[in-house]
Amino acid sequence: MDCTLEVGEDAVILKVIGRVDEATWNSFSEGLSGAVRNARDDGLTRLIVDLQQLAYMSSRGLRALTVAKREADEAGVNISLASPNDVMREILAISRYDKLFTVTDTAEAKR
């Protein structure tokens, strides 16, 4: 699993590559926390987690998203999930995380 951070004009985009499971959730969680801090420090109110290159995420990753959402709420940052593949869409539906997070088809931010 790898995370890359991109700062746009109105949002921070965190691209997640690979899979998030018991072996990688900690790195993913650190990446999310860093992205929230980055958005806050740059005065941005949006963090887009780009899932296009994510194979899948287990409950570990989903719960890391919950921890990040709490940090983001305190920082005044809104987290959305973008471009999930079909597997990830199913996982978001089964876990009902599609009711906790806004899920979009594309990661759109002003560059």
Binding site: S58, S59, L62, R63, T66, I91, I94, S95, R96, Y97, K99, L100
Partner: peptide, 20 residues
């Protein structure tokens, strides 16, 4: 519960989810 329920309105109710 679903995972989403267990980490939101039903957190600290002492139960788990199918996917965990």
């Amino acid at each position: 519960y679903s995972l989403a329920e267990s980490v939101s309105m039903k957190e600290d109710w002492g139960h788990s989810s199918n996917i965990v």
